[in-house]
Amino acid sequence: MSRRESNRQVVDSRWIPAIVVSIALVSWEGSARLGALPGFLFSSPTIVISTLVQSLASGEMFRHIAATLLRVIPGLLLGAIPGFALGIGMGLSPQLRRGLDPLLAAVHPIPKIAILPLVMIFLGVGEASRIAVASVAAFFPMLINTMAGIRQIDPIYFQVAENYGASRLKLLTRVVLPGSLPLVLSGLRLAANVTLLVTISAEIVMADVGLGSFVWLAWETLRVELLYATLIVISTLGITLTASLRFLQSALAPWEVAEPRR
């Protein structure tokens, strides 16, 4: 009771984000119509939405979405699976960890898009290079999270398993894998995010189809409304990817108490 009295509010705080967004949209629309904003920079929300609907209806946007997904998904799998495997190895073996740590420390901080030219020397200008860069980007967060996931398992669980006579296989399937799973799945989420980021960047640099190239095309033809529409699609894609991986996490690791939402 006293708590409620102490913070009397005009509106429920849950509505604040919606209100702020509405105000921004309405004032954007209003100032665009009144000519207060230069049209070639800002367009207006209604024009952006109608452009978006048009591009979806004509199927053109879907062609680009499909092209991007056909790079993101193979890139993610080709990077995350080896990252996971090596992460298990480095998590379990101190020797392997000590041996590879310097290499990891040297390569990991490079922004992965920066190696695209190098990759192109090896794989040529084409699909293979774009997917390769995406998978390199997916590899590292997966590797690092898997390794960390294994190392944070309390040694007591290994002792309990050993005490009950667990075989090496059982140790892996009943302790190592489930014990590291929550962090592994966080790693997968991170990997998906950077894969999308790097794929879009690579498409901007070299591709004739894909959301990155579509954004670039919109810039080259000075179609601001199409630029905004494509950005909305990219952000929706990112949100969907993250949300579905969060769902996967809660389905596969139900013992993890849900993290507080931020």
């Binding site: 007591i156 309990v160 398993a161 009950y164 006579g165 667990a166 009943r174 489930p178 013992w255």
Partner: peptide
């Protein structure tokens, strides 16, 4: 902390039998 957080109560209790 000796009880595995990632197993249900049933799986935890059955763990020794599972290992055998």
């Amino acid at each position: 902390h000796g009880v595995f957080p990632w197993m249900t109560v049933l799986d935890n209790v059955a763990f020794g039998l599972e290992m055998r």
